[in-house]
Nucleic acid binder design. Structure first.
Lengths: 208, 208
DNA sequence: AAAACATTGTGAAAGTCTTGACAAAGGTTT
DNA sequence: AAACCTTTGTCAAGACTTTCACAATGTTTT
């Protein structure tokens, strides 16, 4: 838990640093300066140093940053050092796509099950994951720890299902339903609006 | 084409206004004040007025904003008054999810086809859309207008496929591959990194 | 048709975020 | 082991964004 307030803007950039650093590590790069990294990421070196320094002095003057160490440190900041148990609500194409996402497990993100109103229609089981009926959700929540629920269901169903999840103790919500999910303050909701980003693209195509 | 520079922050908010206004219209609401809308959207009334005023005086003193009119105006700003022809590259779960997305067509966004390296494996055709082999992509681009390509392919394939698309005249890219796609300046790329948003959630769960 | 009311549009203030600049600190070379 | 080089950490300036506050203007009521 940080005591200084970290701005949303910084938090948004951390996963991006993670991506570039992981890529560098896979290329065998062991050290990098803020200058070099800034060129690859198309941001200023100053911003990188400022951002990283909010969480501690991970670099070394005259040397730069150790890639492996930095990945580990940012991982801790993002909570990826702890394991997270995740269920996916809605086993349609999007739910299956997210459940089948490789690399989550490297980061301690474990998809445990999918739920659907019509589980028997689910064409192919994703990576051998069980697909349960929605009716079994409350019981599942009694017997299993769930840190994050992924919602890929119609917006008409989203609020009532979220309530069941919240009552069952779930506090993390990755919401793909087309509404801004409003839950009590101790629940953390990340709303993803894919079509919003497509409209930013149409805006730019029009105003180029 | 706007002459004043509109900030990225404003452009990001426009689709959100669109969502709330469309919802209001479907509830039969015909007029709304910035104050009322700000309460629903949890932003300040001042921000709404400031944002909308960048594009023109859509409101009326003492009355507020006409919902239908505002939807139409924001639609024009976002380019949703023009039709866009879209193809999806990669007919996996994610590609099929996006291709099957309802409501795109209401906004002039027409998915015309999917492409995949193994089209015969595509379990179910989405909404009767054709699934072509990747080999046919250059020929397709010769014969069909494509405004936007949606990339739901592995990052190893993304750049070479993007190059084929760019050479074929495509300038809009909605990229879900796990890299920041870099293309010439006259191409417009919207990179979507789903796992970044999940990591923002794990951050908040850890630092609550 | 006048008075009272509501609400926008907008300039300026306050707040936040990003960038620039450089002293301090450690690395590297000779 | 001294001199030189590199690069961070950090403070302050600059840029950008949000919020405040209110005159202007149109709406509604009486």
């Amino acid at each position: 838990m940080e005591n200084r307030a970290i701005s949303q803007a910084v938090i948004k950039r951390l996963p991006r640093y993670m991506r570039y650093l992981t890529e560098l590590r896979s290329q065998g790069v062991e050290r990098i300066s803020s200058q070099e990294l800034s060129e690859k990421m198309k941001v200023t070196a100053s911003q990188i140093r400022q951002d990283l320094n909010l969480f501690g002095g991970f670099g070394q003057q005259g040397y730069g940053y150790n890639v492996g160490n930095l990945i580990r440190e940012i991982g801790v900041i993002l909570g990826l050092d702890q394991s997270h148990d995740i269920i996916v609500i809605g086993a349609g194409n999007l739910g299956r796509a997210l459940a089948g996402y490789a690399n989550f497990e490297n980061r301690g993100l474990f998809i445990r099950a999918l739920f659907d109103i019509a589980p028997e229609n689910t064409v192919s089981n994703v990576r051998g994951l069980p697909v349960y009926s929605m009716e079994h959700l409350p019981e599942y929540l009694k017997n299993n720890r769930v840190d994050i629920a992924v919602l890929t269901i119609p917006k008409t169903a989203a609020l009532s299902v979220a309530q069941i999840l919240y009552d069952g103790g779930v506090r993390g919500f990755w919401n793909f339903a087309h509404l801004d999910l409003a839950l009590p303050d101790d629940a953390y909701v990340e709303n993803v609006h894919l079509s919003d980003s497509l409209m930013q693209l149409t805006y730019r195509l029009k105003h180029k």
